[in-house]
Write a protein that binds this DNA or RNA. Structure first.
Length: 272
DNA sequence: CTGTTAACCTGAGTGC
DNA sequence: TGCACTCAGGTTAACA
């Protein structure tokens, strides 16, 4: 369920605790998440230090002092919690990294749509990351970029935005919110968008994501930060999960429809 | 290549 | 209570 703001909030919470810290022990419990957790993970990272923690889209990248990188994706229900080494393990706690500073980093994921991977090479060249679209806060994520990418494409703009190959990190909540902020109907075909609309959309995405990070993400049901705290962006949602309620701008009743089997909420008055 | 759909998996909520 | 069914912050692989 975590999208870019939630993943970034988790990253910000983990960074001060684990940078420079050495892995003392590794416990792998899950047989299989989205993919198998590397069976030799322990030998890869035990007694090695984390040098840096980056984010690309919804992926977290833990760079180790042996040159390798642990890649973690949280899927729909994944959590990364900082707990004491002796805590009672959650039913769905699939991986625990125990560190020299006496803190454990725990990966919990009931639905197992998440992923824990390892690469010796440049993580950005990993097959799963290599083809990702621009980072929303990249200077190059502009209206021009979106306009060029969207030409001759016959998909609803919302689905296009949620495709990580268009822009990385935008999921269902923030696609809904950004489209509302840009006054664009979610079911518009991408190739019908004008350059002007693409500019409004890219700006809306940056603005919505920035505020959501500032608010620590959106907690609807599962999401919590690495310290267990919840995100407060729910209070700023304009359309997501507000079907049947009134539009905050014009007062019309918000409509819902399914786009690519994802719930979509919009204001038929404000969004054209 | 593009576009659509099923699949991965568990838990919470609803209606009968 | 139980059962059937729907839905959920994601994404890939397999189709047409």
């Amino acid at each position: 369920m975590p999208e870019l703001p939630e993943v970034e909030t988790i990253r910000l919470g983990l960074e001060p605790i684990f940078i420079g810290q050495k892995v003392r022990d590794v416990v792998v419990r899950a047989r299989k998440l989205r993919w198998q957790i590397p069976s030799n993970l322990s030998s890869l990272i035990k007694n090695h230090k984390i040098l840096a923690l980056y984010r690309r889209g919804k992926y977290l990248l833990f760079v180790f002092d042996n040159g390798g990188t642990l890649i973690i994706h949280l899927g729909m229900t994944g959590r990364l919690l900082v707990l004491p080494p002796k805590h009672k393990p959650d039913k769905h706690e699939h991986l625990v990294l125990e560190f020299a500073n006496n803190k454990s980093l725990c990966f919990i994921d009931p639905r197992k749509f998440g992923a824990v991977l390892w690469t010796h090479d440049d993580p950005l060249q990993h097959p799963l990351l290599q083809k990702l679209g621009k980072e929303p806060f990249d200077r190059e994520f502009t209206g021009d970029y979106l306009w060029h990418k969207s030409r001759q494409r016959k998909v609803a703009i919302k689905q296009f935005l949620m495709d990580g190959h268009t822009v990385a990190g935008v999921g269902n909540i923030y696609a809904n919110e950004a489209l509302f902020a840009a006054s664009v109907r979610p079911d518009r075909m991408t190739d019908s968008l004008t350059l002007e609309e693409c500019k409004k959309l890219t700006n809306a995405i940056k603005q919505v994501l920035r505020l959501a990070i500032k608010k620590g993400g959106t907690t609807i049901r599962d999401y919590v930060a690495s310290d267990g705290s919840i995100g407060s962006f729910v209070a700023h949602l304009s359309v997501y999960a507000r079907e049947g309620q009134r539009c905050i701008k014009c007062g019309a009743i918000l409509k819902a429809k399914r786009l690519g089997q994802r719930s979509t909420v919009y204001c038929a008055q404000c969004q054209k």
